[in-house]
């Protein structure tokens, strides 16, 4: 987080005020590491969605500055086009994102806007359709699909534009367990390809197990930013912001087992090993 060249986003004193004079964010200073999996946590109304929209350039900060790849985000049309291509945004409700009459056309939408070339758009659309295994449903209306399929179509439509960063606002909302797992498998694969993934979630266990960095927002202000294991094992801090501790940490606390500061358990397997060693 400290290495400037390795940061994909840098926010300096960023504040955002909505037209109704309500401050959604106040003096946020954060740097997001390239290729990291980042969790944005906080209560409802803490400013998570606003921060995501600021990172995508949809909203312009009232004060402060945001740098993307060491360049200041400029809100001119041409510069924003470039930013929107590089920073994909997955909305919590898939129905808000789906606009085309068929899945094929839905995926082609961003590509056509980007390349303005029908043949290239078709080629890329077909590639992403086969990559996401959507061939069976490519001629269907997106509104006929299940929530999981809709989410996959939305993700495919964003990934078709080959973004560097994928911002997911509550990616698991409306999804059953299986669809959620599938979505995170895809996100994991993308992260391994070097993409930065930023998710906002209320699922603290998922955030703890899946992400590397955590940004904790509380009442429009930054409460903590650091390694997920460090931030989320601080029970006192989490209590202040009305967020429960991850199950793994709670369990260790209940068992009166000291959490190793250098290498806290991240998965259930790590937890089992730690309990075994402390039995």
């Amino acid at each position: 987080m400290a290495d400037r060249a390795n940061n994909i986003f840098e926010l300096r004193e960023v504040s955002y005020c909505y037209p109704n004079d309500e401050w959604a964010l106040k003096n946020i200073n954060i740097s997001i590491t390239r290729g990291a999996k980042v969790a944005l946590l906080g209560e409802n109304g803490a400013g998570k969605s606003t921060l995501m929209l600021l990172l995508n350039g949809i909203l312009k900060p009232t004060n402060g500055s945001i740098q993307f790849e060491n360049e200041l985000i400029c809100h001119r049309r041409k510069a924003l086009r470039k930013l929107h291509q590089k920073v994909g945004f997955l909305f919590p409700n898939s129905d808000d994102q789906l606009i085309a009459p068929t899945v094929y056309e839905e995926i082609s939408f961003g590509l056509m806007n980007l390349y303005k070339d029908e043949n290239l758009t078709r080629k890329k659309t077909e590639e992403i359709i086969s990559h996401f295994d959507l061939k069976q449903i490519q001629h269907k209306s997106p509104h006929q699909l299940s929530s999981g399929q809709k989410k996959m179509v939305c993700l495919a439509a964003i990934l078709a534009m080959e973004p560097e960063v994928i911002i997911c606002d509550e990616p698991a909302s409306h999804l059953d367990y299986k669809s959620e797992q599938l979505l995170f498998v895809h996100l994991d694969r993308l992260n391994k390809m070097g993409k930065t993934i930023i998710i906002s979630t209320h699922n603290i266990d998922q955030a703890y197990e899946w992400t590397d960095e955590t940004i904790l927002l509380h009442q429009s202000q930054l409460k903590a930013h650091g390694k997920t294991t460090e931030v989320l094992s601080n029970s006192k801090l989490l209590k202040e912001v009305n967020i429960p501790s991850p199950t793994i940490i709670s369990l260790l606390n209940e068992l009166n087992i000291d959490i190793p500061t250098n290498n806290p358990p991240k998965t259930k397997k790590d937890l089992a090993q730690l309990i075994y060693l402390n039995r």
């Binding site: 909305f91 808000d96 082609s108 590509l111 303005k116 078709r122 490519q138 964003i158």
Partner: peptide, 25 residues
């Protein structure tokens, strides 16, 4: 409200109020 969100979603995919879709060949 939902349409406003859709417009944001379209802008995020370089929509710029143009509705160009491509059908399969």
């Amino acid at each position: 409200k939902a349409n406003k969100t859709t417009e944001i979603a379209m802008t995020a995919r370089l929509g710029n109020h143009q509705y160009h879709f491509v059908s399969p060949h």
